[in-house]
Design a binder for these strands. Sequence first.
DNA 1: GCTTTCGTAGGGCGACTGTCCTAATCCCTG
DNA 2: CAGGGATTAGGACAGTCGCCCTACGAAAGC
Lengths: 195, 195
Amino acid sequence: MGASETRRQIVDVADQLFYEHGFEATSFADIAQDVGLSRGNFYYHFKTKDEILGAVIAQRMSNTRAMLEVWKQEAASPAERILSFIHILIANRTKIMAYGCPVSTLCNELAKLDHAAKDDAAGLFSLFRDWLAQQFAALGREADAEALALHILMRSQGVAALATAFCDENFIRREVSDMEAWLHAQCSSSSLPHS
Amino acid sequence: MGASETRRQIVDVADQLFYEHGFEATSFADIAQDVGLSRGNFYYHFKTKDEILGAVIAQRMSNTRAMLEVWKQEAASPAERILSFIHILIANRTKIMAYGCPVSTLCNELAKLDHAAKDDAAGLFSLFRDWLAQQFAALGREADAEALALHILMRSQGVAALATAFCDENFIRREVSDMEAWLHAQCSSSSLPHS
DNA sequence: GCTTTCGTAGGGCGACTGTCCTAATCCCTG
DNA sequence: CAGGGATTAGGACAGTCGCCCTACGAAAGC
């Protein structure tokens, strides 16, 4: 097994553990155990824990870009693409109720730790924001595309936050329906929702 | 200085540090330093760190109840009371942009740690939810009061999450205006927003 | 064949964690 | 002033943290 394969495996495991237990609560030993490696040997692949974090964020950025590209190709219309985004709340509802949104929880943790990589983590949000803004612009809402993108992104974050606290699946479905209705209203009118 | 006074001081400092740096990242030594006590001496006031967490959550519950009571007495109409809630996003914008919402960030951290007190922390959300539902019911929306309460609570959470990531004060003000407009629409119509 | 390189195992390092104990000090009461 | 419970300081304790080093094994190139 090559070193790059092991490295990829470490990043995969770290990604999952950072999501499920948090960055700080995940130790080298935890990652090593799940990968099946000696903990001391990590130094060969990553000099520091922050380096692992950097690799995890980079992988998430790459995975997110790929996912957005798939959504762009699979969905015919901009509205359907936005729906693809909205529906991750349903698709990932179990994990969200248990661990929250992987992006916001990481951003929040790094913000509290005042970690150097906190802006990099926020870059994941920018990826979604820009992609969503692109879709709203394609819907003819060039003027306020970014505001609309941030609005729908904000809603998904709010739903994730309360879903984690209350573990209420019905709440998620109700709010997703509400987001769909909102999106439909945006499509059929050009009035600004933001005064 | 009595022991109860020292205890209160410990809880105050712990509350702030848990908010700004997170529960796990805050050590006994950190709290001791800010309070000005010997770290070993904590055992006299609190047997475990979890006990401090419990006291912090209890104090937040108490403070929140008091705040909601003040809002209830200061605002004449239910709509104005809900506006009081919405405007904490503006009033606390600086801290929110730096550390996020104190309730959701604690809930998320405890959920990831699978901590025994995670449900207690979620109880803070219940406090807001029930209070908001009470106001919506007073607005004549008894049928979907809780859904409306969760909706506005969800929005505040989403705004807080993105405000932390992007540190964008204009975004907060724009979404707050949007929430005000939504609230106004709820007042002047009895149609269900949630199909 | 031998040697070089790659990847790993295992453990040591100082620092820090939450927890716990003990001895000293404070302040209130008699 | 003397006694005694309340409160404190300071450090010991075992465990874990991220980090770093060295020796071993397994391939691969000459």
